[in-house]
Amino acid sequence: MHPSGRDDVGATSLLLIALSGILAGCAARHAAPDARRLEELAGQASLIFRGTVVKAAASSVRAVPAGPDTAVVRVDEVLRGEETLGGLIAQQVTVRLRVPASVSPRQHAAFFANPEVFGENLAVREVDHLAAAETGADLGKSVDEAGRRQADQALRQRLAQAQAVVVGVVSSARPLAEELRPPRSEHDPDWWRAELKVEAVVKGQLLAGEVAVHFAHSRDVVWFRSPKLRERQRGVFLLQRSEAAGLPPGSYALLDPLDLQPLEERPRIERLLRTIR
């Protein structure tokens, strides 16, 4: 018993503050992941995994010196980046922490990261991590959804840039130049011209009929991922005006892998276009 009533009031206040803090902490730990935060992290991370901290201030990669900003983490579940992390379940990776000394041994967390060093083991640089209690059981589903939204955003941007989007079939494809001409470099695109028979206009002012579109026929490392067209090929074509060297001014060209979509993507494309208009 304190001789002063004021002290009693003070002690009670402190107790209430402490209790409210604990309750708030409990509430935070049991809250579903903040969707916006998750989206932000997922948007910056090519690797997302649940892991258990094995050792703080440690490294399993010789090229990454151990320090307060590193930790060795066992991979428990891969949520994104199966190609990179797929063989590493139950294996250890080194995480370079955004905030030094922000993890402790045996801590479970979801790590949002990007590769930094491939050595005798993998080292990643985290965008951030979320404590296990912050992520909820549906983190995998949330990450998948975030990935779909990212993919949608990439296609949405390409759709927004396109002057026209059409459903059609390639009626012919041939080299743009009549004769074999020497390329300017080994990365020359080797422009070809295709005639598209337009079956439906999804975006733009094109009339039904035929439209010419150019594409890089080259298999060079600079171009091998860009769309290649062949006769009788059907699809959804995102026609982009291009001023690329070697093309007639104002030409349509398919340059990005996203510029050619399979027919079954038409509903998704129409849905995304509605969000642009």
Binding site: V117, F118, E120, V222, R225
Partner: peptide, 20 residues
């Protein structure tokens, strides 16, 4: 005798090629 891959050449997310 041993080699690492160290990511330190500026490129771009989503780029088709790491560099030319």
């Amino acid at each position: 005798q041993t080699w690492n891959l160290v990511l330190n050449v500026p490129s771009a997310v989503g780029a088709a090629l790491p560099t030319g």
